[in-house]
């Protein structure tokens, strides 16, 4: 009873890169428990996703069924709970993506297990560290049940490297699939050719100081010079300058890129909670008292109107573009 099970998200016959930090988490837990790290892949039309997952995991259970084509917490949670119970694992984890956050607590209820959200550090087989209060405190937590569930903060664990030898792939039955009359209607994806916010090496974010949607174009230009992702504060999203899913912060995405450029952002604690683990932070704001400067490595007191043209020209020159 000391093995770890990782819920692997997948797309187009491969596991998502967002799952790899959860596998690293699993390996760290296994160091404490002396167990193995297994994976589970759930869906329909899975292609080689199971084999892909097995590059990182000593055993992968594939549950493939036409009734599991679209993700529903109602149908996926019983499958995850059943696989966990059949394998007799002591830990079940997933990356804290939206899907992970939706699924794991429901599975925890079915497994009668304790759960920890957004783990940033493993300190024992059932002992973890997680941020609370918008990242203003780090709580050490211990799970007291036989089985522990956890979601893992993607930015705090490195992506797992493949194993020397791939693990075994087994298939398992889904059991009774009951959607409880819940129905996936559609997914309206925001169109973007940019990398995922959570995975981008460079993030350029704008706040209310950008004043309107049109002005975000200048940030998009800088973003694309870096091949990065565009982000925004809650205020900028609420004002409709950019799509809601670009929100960085306590209740939006948590990012930790190599370079974070904050433009026209004052730096509310809820926003800082989502970006202060970035390696290098640049802040451009006209108000020298803005809290963003307290976390910035390099601050420039200026309006974005004055700073951005020169910054874009300088980056273009440096990149030889």
């Amino acid at each position: 009873m000391s093995n770890v099970l990782i819920f692997c998200e997948h797309k187009d016959g491969a596991i998502k890169t967002s799952t790899l930090p959860a596998i690293t988490f699993g390996r760290e837990v296994a160091k404490h428990t002396g167990g193995e790290v297994y994976g589970v892949v759930v869906g329909s039309g899975l292609g080689d996703a199971g084999a892909d997952a097995a590059r990182y995991l000593s055993k992968v259970v594939v549950v493939e069924n036409d009734g599991l084509g679209n993700y529903l917490a109602e149908t996926y949670a019983p499958v995850l709970a059943k696989v966990a119970a059949d394998l007799g694992v002591s830990t079940v984890a997933a990356t804290a993506t939206n899907l992970g956050k939706d699924l794991l607590p429901r599975a925890a209820a079915l497994l009668e297990a304790g759960m920890v959200s957004d783990v940033i550090e493993v300190t024992g087989g059932k002992a973890f560290v997680r941020p609370t209060n918008a990242g203003n405190a780090l709580g050490s937590v211990e799970v007291l049940t036989d089985v522990a569930l956890a979601t893992v903060r993607q930015t705090e664990f490195d992506p797992a490297a493949p194993l020397d030898a791939a693990g075994a792939v087994e298939s398992a039955e889904a059991g009774d699939i009951d959607s409880l009359n819940a129905e996936f209607v559609q997914l309206n994806l925001s169109e973007s050719t940019r990398p995922d916010l959570s995975e981008a090496k460079v993030v350029v974010s704008g706040g209310r100081g950008m004043k309107n949607a049109e002005n975000f174009k200048v940030l998009e230009e800088l973003t694309d010079l870096f091949g990065g992702a565009l982000g925004a504060t809650r205020a900028a999203c609420d004002a409709g300058y950019v799509a809601n899913d670009l929100q960085v912060g306590q209740t939006g995405k948590v990012v930790a890129p190599d370079l974070y450029i904050a433009v026209g952002i004052s730096g509310a604690i809820q926003h800082l909670a989502g970006m202060k683990s970035s390696k290098v932070i640049v802040a451009i704001n006209k108000d020298e008292e803005a809290p963003i400067f307290q976390v910035a490595d390099f601050g420039l007191v200026s309006t974005w109107e004055n700073a951005m043209p020169d910054l874009i020209a300088g980056v273009k020159k440096a990149k030889g573009a």
Binding site: A113, G114, M115, V116, A127, P131, T132, G135, N136, A137, L138, G139, S140, V141, E142, V143, L144, T145, K276, I281, E288, F293, V295, A296, D297, F298, G299, L300, V301, S302, A307, D310, L311, G314
Partner: peptide, 24 residues
């Protein structure tokens, strides 16, 4: 309880940054 908080600690402080004078 199924989960127990044992301790709370402040997060590590970021090292002090600098204010630059120009885009250059």
């Amino acid at each position: 309880l199924r989960v127990k908080h044992t301790t709370f600690a402040p997060p590590p402080e970021r090292g002090g940054g600098i204010i630059v004078k120009s885009v250059d």
